[in-house]
């Protein structure tokens, strides 16, 4: 089964770019363009990882992360955001994001992070099994 990514992004061009490189990588991409859609699809589509833009048109990515954490505590969320001032990284990680990338991103770094996070998860479940 391919790795399933929930891609949350409200800017159409950025959505196009990211889904293009993720699909090219062989990932299964589920798209959401606002926070509520992200929460709905996270519950329904059972993604392996969420790539989360932090500024969204309805609820903020920060709220969405908090809600997702309550509903799906084991779902890894990677912040991919244009909030890139000092303190923004810490803010996202404190909120419960497992990793943080500031735009402009190097998408290969983000793809590497997805692999790294899923490998860690698989290693843990192998130990537990």
């Amino acid at each position: 089964m391919p790795i399933r990514i929930l891609l949350v992004e409200d800017t159409p061009v950025n959505m196009y770019v990211l889904q293009r490189v993720l699909r090219n990588e062989g990932f299964d991409v589920v798209e959401a363009t606002d926070g509520n859609e992200a929460i709905r699809k996270a519950e329904k589509e059972k993604p392996d990882v969420v790539l989360m833009d932090m500024r969204l048109p309805d609820i903020s990515g920060y709220e969405a992360v908090t809600i997702l954490h309550q509903k799906l505590p084991t779902l890894p969320i990677i912040a991919v955001t244009a909030d890139a001032l000092p303190g923004d990284r810490e803010w996202c990680l404190n909120l419960g994001c497992i990793d943080y990338f500031s735009k402009p991103i190097r998408y290969r770094d983000v793809i590497q992070a997805v692999y790294r996070i899923l490998k860690r998860r698989d290693d843990r479940s192998a130990i537990n099994a």
Partner: peptide
């Protein structure tokens, strides 16, 4: 910063593609 980075992300990532 946020508003400049957003289109810049598109430009740089598209170039990389």
């Amino acid at each position: 910063s946020h508003e400049l980075r957003t289109p810049l992300n598109s430009i740089l990532a598209l170039s990389q593609i």
